[in-house]
Design a protein around this nucleic acid. Structure first.
Lengths: 357, 357
DNA sequence: GGCAATCTTTTTAACGTTAATATCCCTGGG
DNA sequence: CCCAGGGATATTAACGTTAAAAAGATTGCC
């Protein structure tokens, strides 16, 4: 990109020097008054703060970044949304992450990369070369994540939405307990009297999918239910639909299907629809993620809501701790999802979940 | 926030001076070689570029921002997602906007604000005071938008996703032709033989909603259809549901319902569900925005897809033009949405839209 | 050969901030 | 009265970049 600007132009920005003149002190004293309050006399400090207030001074982040090598920027890479994806999770996540970041005095800068881990790492490195980035937030970490290794080797603070699946204790992460969530969903349908409870989840390579499946296994074992009805498939509506058909064609068919995602659960709903069966009344269904669709379909889809705003807050908190050089152990935070019960898992009459008011 | 760093620390960043030494020239010549190629002799330039390449030099954006008052940052404010919102539009938009921004040498920085226009303007001003922001991207502009006035008064370049509804010619905007889209949807259901076509759209204060409604009116007038079946409601599933019931209870009931959003259309589907009617076969339905839900419900929802990646590209293009001080007229770009036909508007047999493969 | 015109490159200074260092001023002890 | 100790404030220099101005090199023309 060509830079066509012709050098610094007059601006309305208030600088340290102006505040200093106003308060009758040096620029350094103003800086100290703001960043090291104990280095200036209380009397002076009051005068300086008054001048700051009066002139509406805000420190210039570019200058500070240049001087301190610390930009108060946190980088995050968005993933392209797949057409078939139901969940708004990342949208909400980005919003709350930014809110928490701003709250803590940071700003979020978005990173763009070609797909794949190599492209992502390359994009991180280029961003770091171009400007100082205080920290990174990773999402969807997995076993032996190259990104973790890269960021660590560069010595950049970072925290991850998604635990370290390889037991890396030094990683700061925040995650949601998919196992506990799926267990709760399974127990919920079992409490409705279901005994043939199938599970449709993601392929085995996905640690996240495996974790959720464990919750179903836990609940089944507790209640001595059979666990023969399980499918490990890709996360698409069609895969959910086909898996559901298989489990309903079984000699002793499923009466409840616990799914690893709302997308899969919607596939199950489509399968039921094709068979003239009613979700809830005939077959109980649960999903995962509380996508908007879950509330909008009829009947509503029982699902698990991730406490996404808490995830955002905790991640920023973790980064703040890392930045402060806090000698405490890196944070590991595991949050519980919340079971949102709607019509798809209830035997009750097929009334709308929404009051007719 | 306290700054605990103890001053610039050794880093791996390559600077202009290092490149200059390597190439045996002054730092300024390196700067010129990169930013004003015609100011250095071709021979020298080659040598400099080789050194740049060799050392992997990337200009430091903080230093550049400080010197130039131009940060290559574009600010965008996200809105919190409402629980009832079906559309991923903003998620996708953010992604493509960032992709286009990075492509053009910018980066996207997220802005956070209290709800309401005043909070948003305040957040913009604070961000501007803290650091130089090259440009802003606005979304969902409306009649007499205070944000437009504020940004203009500050002299900051900006472009808007959403046209100027008050005929402000000097605003650079990109928008999608809701009127043409709704017209296409209406003509589509009319082509299926429907004659009692209702419209459920947003309240009259919404320029966007009104624009879409006009498209329905256009098509109805063209084909001499009655336009008595119309509702102007808030954008919620429940509102769509109730409006649908009213139009189906009419003495000459609707046989097709064109909706101003997928959320409303899903409300209509729920109403049909409650009445034991089948979408498509009994009553045709169309939505707007091609939310993920539209593809996931059964039958699939016919809807209008906004060319969101083109919107993103055009916005960055518009900003680039503004930044270059391009004397051309501010860009106004009106893009056509694409009608995505699914089962909800087709009389055909109730087979799944997804092949069973 | 002299000198202006032009092209190329270097030097200087500044963007706004802050760590490190220097200076000043006051208090108290000898 | 002088000086050490120390708290408060000021000065210097640097972060990496680039516009503007200065300096140097080259060409062409009379």
């Amino acid at each position: 990109m060509q830079h066509t600007n012709r050098g610094p132009v007059p601006h309305g920005h208030v600088t340290l020097v102006q505040v200093a003149q106003r308060a009758g002190v040096s620029a350094q004293s103003v800086s100290n008054a703001l960043n090291n309050p104990d280095r200036v006399a209380p009397e002076t400090r009051k005068r300086i703060l008054a001048a700051v207030e009066e002139l509406g001074y805000e420190p210039n982040l570019s200058a500070r970044a240049l001087r301190n090598r610390s930009s108060s920027l946190i980088a995050f890479k968005m993933r392209p949304s797949r057409p078939d994806k139901a969940s708004l999770l990342m949208d909400d996540f980005l919003y709350v992450l930014n809110a928490a970041a701003v709250e803590a005095g940071y700003h979020l800068i978005l990173c763009h990369a070609e797909d794949g881990p190599a492209g992502e790492i390359k994009a991180y490195r280029e961003l770091l070369k171009k400007t100082s980035i205080d920290a990174f937030v990773l999402a969807e970490t997995h076993h032996h994540d190259d990104r973790v290794a890269a960021l660590r080797s560069w010595g950049v603070p970072f925290a991850s939405f998604g635990r370290s699946w390889d037991g890396d204790e030094s990683l700061a992460w925040v995650d949601v307990d998919g196992r506990a969530g799926t267990r709760a969903a399974t127990e919920h349908v079992a409490a409705q009297g279901h005994r043939r409870i199938g599970h449709i989840g993601w392929v085995a390579e996905s640690e996240l999918g495996q974790d959720r499946r464990e919750g179903w296994l836990d609940a089944c074992r507790d209640r001595e239910l059979e666990t023969d009805l399980q499918a490990a498939v890709v996360d698409s509506l069609e895969a959910g639909r086909q898996a559901a058909h298989r489990m309903l064609d079984a000699s002793r068919p499923a009466t409840a299907l616990v799914c690893g995602s709302d997308t899969l659960a919607l596939g199950v709903m489509r399968a039921l629809h094709e068979r003239g069966l009613r979700p809830g009344a005939d077959v109980a269904i649960t999903g995962y993620d509380d996508s908007p669709t879950a509330a909008l379909v009829s009947p509503g889809l029982t699902t698990l809501r991730q406490p996404i705003d808490e995830v955002g807050r905790q991640l920023i908190q973790a980064i703040d701790n890392l930045m402060a050089g806090d000698p405490r152990e890196p944070q590991h935070v595991l949050l519980e999802p919340e079971l949102v019960v709607r019509g798809s898992s209830l035997p009750g009459p097929r009334t709308s979940a929404v009051p007719t008011s």
